[in-house]
Structure formats: C-alpha cells, structure tokens
Design a protein around this nucleic acid. Structure first.
Lengths: 152, 152
DNA sequence: TTCGTTGCAAAAGGTTTGCATACCA
DNA sequence: TGGTATGCAAACCTTTTGCAACGAA
C-alpha cells in the first residue's frame, strides 16, 4: 500500500528529531501504521498497543516522541471531547482538516479551502495578529452509523 | 450596558437548570459578568474569584453548574491550548464562533456564515451522520500586540 | 568519553465522584 | 417530609518532570 516500507520511513523520520534510538523508531513506526488504519491515536493507546506487540517502550518516551514530532511539524495534534490529545502522523507538510468518526475513530481529510480563505479573511479584518485556527469536524461514519447502533 | 440587572437574569436562568439554589445563582451571575468583561473563563478562575468576592461556593458546584449549563445549551465550551475547559455564557441560543486573544483572553465574535455553509456541505457530502464542528480562532488582539510585546 | 535519551515513579493539573449534610419545594 | 444540591476530600486521567542508568555518536 505504501511506496516504502514503514520501517525505513520511520528510521528516516527519527533522524530528523535528533539522535536515533530504537524506541523512537518503534513509536514512529506504530504512529505511521496507525495513521494508515485509523488516523488519530492517543499516546496511551499507542503505548498500550506497543506493550501488546511485545515492543515495550516507556509511556514517557511515547509522550516525548510524539510531542517532539508535533513540534517538528510531522504530526497533527487535536483534542478529543474528553481532553485527551490525539496524534496523527503527517506525511506531507500541508495544513489539513479532518472529519473524525466519534464511534471508531477513523478520520477522513476534507476539502477546506473555503475555511482557509475565511480564516485568512478574519485575520486580515480583525486587527488581531498571529491568527491561527483550529477546525474539528466530528460525526458518525457510514460503517458505524448503518450497522449496530440505532440510538437517537 | 445590560437591559436587565444581572441578578435577575441569573435567577431566571437558574430556574431552567432545575431547583433554584443560592449557589447556582452566584455562579451564573459571575459567569454572566465574566462574559461581559472577558468572555471565556475557566471553572477554576471563576471559583477563585468567587472566594475573593466572599461568595464561597464549592469547586464541585462550580463544575456541576457550568456543566449543566453547557449541556442545557446556555454556555459555550472550548479547550485552551493547555487542555483546560473554558466556559462562556451564551445569552442567545445561536451557534457562534470567536476569535480569542491568547494574551489577555478577550474574545470577539466573528462572522462565520461561510464556515457554517462549508460544514453543512461537508456533512452532506461525506456520508457521515450527526456531523458537528468546532472552530477556534486565536490571535493577539490590537491592545496586546501594539503595547508591550515586540517579539516575532 | 560525552551527552542526549530512557524508564520508572512521583508530581502536577484539571475534572469527577462518593457520601453525609443542608436545604428547596 | 422527600428528594435534590452542596461541600469536602479522595479518586481519576492524562501529561510532565526528576533523576539515575543507558547507549548512540
């Protein structure tokens, strides 16, 4: 599915953070895998699945790696409704917005040109400096909506 | 500035939450006052200022009141970059978005018709159900930008 | 060897909850 | 009186931090 093996990609990315370590490679690899299958993941769930995969990495290290990655612009960070930070590996460097399923967590990038335009517009006319925007869309994806749950 | 005294307004609103209590009235009044002067406030800061004003209300009660208010649609809730929940009293019942100053916390409602349109559009074409959106704009207001800080 | 990184456990910070008491209706 | 709201403190959760041991360059 990928033009390059995850391991090589992860190794490459780790170098960008500073010193190469096995742990960072493991975390990054897991983050990239998660990106392909579900999109955003929390540090805790990533840590849990690493333990299950017999690739034990300290929770602190997971946090530190993800934070460094986010700071380096290689990951998007959002907050779910519970206040937990969710991370998503970002292959490219462009600004994107996603529609996230509240049931299964799957995320889907959406076209957001008009939002970008609007945000730029507000920034220009408001008199405020250094205007940034956060846009989060949530909903229930077709899979989760049609199958089990019949509430509401 | 208001067509009605805060106390009366607060009393009125409290009734909507259920049983009337002095504490809820106090919290609501403080929230309304905060809305007029600074916009969003955290539960903790509201609690602190109530203590200072010799109107002691338990922190739990502040949280419970604010949560109930938010659930009843009478308050907007956002999360700051630290993960703290910020509440803002909402006089009307319409959906609004704000541009918030990261320095002083002052907030300013912005015209967001195009965002609403865009969100509705995404909701319609995505196949997702119950699509909701969160839009947060942050920046540095003219007052904070021109005076002290000369960074960037 | 050097110095950044790891891992553990404890701290921190915000929010929620259990339970006895107080009080509105 | 009956039942809901309060207040305190302890529990909870996620995230951060101190520090000794480890390992990449």
């Amino acid at each position: 599915m990928n033009s390059r093996p995850r391991v090589a990609l992860a190794t490459e990315e780790v170098s960008l953070l500073g010193r190469f370590t096995q742990q960072r490679a493991i975390v990054l690899e897991a983050l990239i895998e998660a990106e392909e299958t579900e999109g955003f993941v929390s540090a805790r769930s990533l840590h849990t699945r690493l333990l299950a995969a017999h690739a034990p990495v300290g929770l602190s290290t997971v946090y530190r790696t993800l934070s460094a990655l986010a700071e380096a612009g290689r990951a998007d960070v959002i907050r779910d409704m519970h206040g937990e930070r969710l991370f998503r590996y970002r292959p490219g460097s462009d600004h994107r917005h996603y529609l996230i399923c509240t049931e299964c967590g799957v995320s889907m990038p959406v076209d957001s040109d008009s939002v970008e335009t609007w945000a730029a517009d507000v920034a220009r006319t408001s008199g405020f400096a250094d205007v940034r925007h956060t846009v989060e869309l949530t909903g229930v994806c077709p899979d989760c909506g049609t199958s089990g749950d019949g509430s509401s």
